[in-house]
């Protein structure tokens, strides 16, 4: 069912506090013929690469903020931000909170500086 053109390209921020020097971006390609929310996309990346960490719990309403993330340089709710097949998207941790790993942040701790 996947069309040849049906791909989303992602540049995802990677960070592991055990190796902070190696922080940087990694490229992924998710095959899909349908648009995906950034949240669904993150889950797809995790399924391709189990070392990539993201939050997966959702309220299905765009209300709780479990999915807060930075998309193409803007803080956003990942569950209501759509990406179309063929697009390239940059994903980073939400700028307001401290990063735990990759795109997972600690909501109880504001980012310093």
């Amino acid at each position: 069912m996947e069309q040849a053109s049906g791909k989303i390209h992602i540049k995802a921020y990677r960070f592991d506090p055990a190796n902070p020097d190696q922080a940087g971006f990694q490229s992924y390609t998710v095959p899909t013929a349908e648009p995906l929310s950034v949240m669904a996309l993150m889950a797809e990346i995790h399924a391709l690469d189990e070392t990539f960490a993201c939050r997966t719990s959702t309220c299905f309403k765009g209300q709780c903020g479990s999915c807060l993330v930075r998309v193409n340089g803007r803080d956003a709710l990942g569950c209501v931000t759509m990406v179309q097949p063929g697009e390239t998207v940059t994903l980073e941790p939400h700028s307001k909170y401290r990063v735990v790993r990759d795109l997972v942040v600690d909501f109880s701790q504001p980012q310093e500086g």
Binding site: C59, F60, S66
Partner: peptide, 12 residues
């Protein structure tokens, strides 16, 4: 196991 008020069935 997740952040309170940002995980779990209750939110849905």
């Amino acid at each position: 196991k997740g952040p309170v008020a940002r995980s779990g069935i209750t939110l849905t």
